[in-house]
Design a protein around this nucleic acid. Structure first.
Length: 156
DNA sequence: GCCAACGTTGGC
DNA sequence: GCCAACGTTGGC
């Protein structure tokens, strides 16, 4: 029997690549992550895991939608491309340093959840969103994920 | 645009 | 291994 899907939160700047872009593409690689902790969380993702898409540097910032892991971690080739904004000379095809996953658009939240609302929800205070504010890929424990789903007006 | 928080780099 | 300098994230 398959293990239950786990929940994650991934940040993105909507002006660069937002939920609307993911919706338009259907499935898209989540490239450009250049932080080891975030990379390691992506490596831990399993097919079918669920992802809250968080819009950062937005007005307002907050959780906008849902996605599903459609392909597990594989090398992020944009790190090898000198013309790419996320180029990293220390990564090479023979020894990839950075990984990405593919996400499939799932849904926009029935209710967008602005950061201010998340912050004032005491049941969410332990989320890495608040304790590790710069972490762009982070796990969301099931109790917190349930709180977020309820706040967002999603069916349980 | 400002700036606090914090991850990374590199000199020693 | 320490830590100052630097660059980036991300809220406001």
């Amino acid at each position: 029997m398959a293990e239950p899907a786990r929940w994650w939160l991934m940040k993105t700047e909507p002006a660069v690549f937002g939920l609307a872009d993911l919706r338009r593409l259907g499935v898209a690689p989540w490239d450009g992550v250049r932080n080891y902790q975030a990379r390691n969380f992506m490596r831990a993702m399993r097919l079918g895991d669920r992802v809250f898409i968080y819009h950062s540097n937005a007005s307002p910032s907050g959780i906008a939608g849902l996605a599903t892991v459609a392909r597990t971690a594989y090398p992020d080739h944009t790190a090898w491309d000198p013309s790419n904004e996320h180029f990293d000379a220390k990564s090479a095809p023979s020894a990839p340093r950075w990984d990405m996953v593919d996400l499939r658009f799932d849904a926009a939240l029935p209710r967008f959840l602005p950061l201010a609302l998340l912050r004032e929800t005491s049941d969410l205070a332990d989320l890495p969103l608040f304790t590790h504010v710069r972490l762009s890929v982070q796990p969301v424990p099931e109790p917190e994920a349930a709180v977020i789903r309820r706040l967002a007006g999603l069916p349980r």
